[in-house]
Amino acid sequence: MNEERNASLKRQTRQASIVIVAGFLGWMAFQLVGGAIGLPVRFAFLADLAMLAALAWALFVLINVWRARRSEGD
């Protein structure tokens, strides 16, 4: 069971890191393309809010992983 738990925690950590990297790359690309083609500012705010939501989700997942690993040591 401990191996399953470790595998699950690794999967969650990998998933959160992928969301962070993909979110930042997508956000930067959207800002670059949006500025180049002259998209309205409200779309930039929408991209910012989506990135903040992705970061909040990743932070929540990583804190849960950290707490689970910390409780294993007790």
Rank of each mutant, 00 (worst) to 15 (best):
A44E: 05
R69I: 09
L32G: 05
A56K: 06
A54S: 12
R5Y: 03
T13D: 03
P40C: 14
G26M: 03
W27I: 02
F24W: 06
W57V: 11
L59H: 07
D74A: 15
G73N: 14
F60V: 06
V61T: 11
L46H: 03
V61G: 01
L25Q: 11
V19E: 10
F30D: 03
L39C: 12
A36R: 08
A56C: 09
L59V: 15
Q12E: 13
M51T: 05
L39V: 15
E4G: 04
I37N: 12
E3V: 10
E4Y: 04
V21P: 03
G38L: 11
S17T: 13
W66P: 01
F45S: 13
G23F: 02
R67T: 02
A22G: 01
M51N: 02
L39E: 05
N64W: 04
A29C: 13
L62W: 00
V61P: 01
F45L: 15
I63A: 09
A36N: 09
E72G: 03
R5A: 10
R5C: 05
V21G: 01
L52Y: 02
G34S: 05
F43W: 12
R42H: 06
V33W: 10
N6P: 00
I18E: 07
R14D: 14
A47W: 00
F24N: 09
G35M: 10
Q15M: 11
K10Y: 10
L9W: 05
T13Q: 06
L32E: 01
L25D: 11
Q12P: 00
M28Y: 09
L25H: 06
R14A: 12
V41C: 01
A36P: 06
W57T: 03
N64I: 04
N6V: 12
R5I: 12
V41K: 13
Q12S: 13
I63W: 04
G38S: 13
E72M: 15
F30P: 00
F60I: 09
L62H: 01
A7L: 10
T13I: 12
A47H: 00
Q31G: 14
F45A: 14
D48V: 04
T13F: 08
I18F: 08
T13V: 12
I18H: 05
A36M: 15
P40G: 11
E3A: 13
A58T: 08
A68R: 08
A68P: 09
N2C: 05
A58K: 02
D74P: 04
L9Y: 04
A44V: 09
A36W: 11
F30K: 01
A68I: 13
E72D: 14
A7T: 10
Q15A: 06
F45D: 10
W66G: 10
G23N: 03
A56T: 14
V33H: 02
K10L: 14
A53D: 03
I18C: 00
N6C: 08
R11V: 10
L32W: 09
A68G: 10
L55V: 13
Q31E: 09
F30N: 01
A53H: 00
W27Q: 02
E3W: 00
E4P: 01
L55I: 09
L55P: 00
V33Q: 06
G38R: 05
P40S: 08
G38M: 09
M51Q: 10
A50M: 12
K10R: 15
A68E: 14
G26L: 03
T13E: 11
G73L: 15
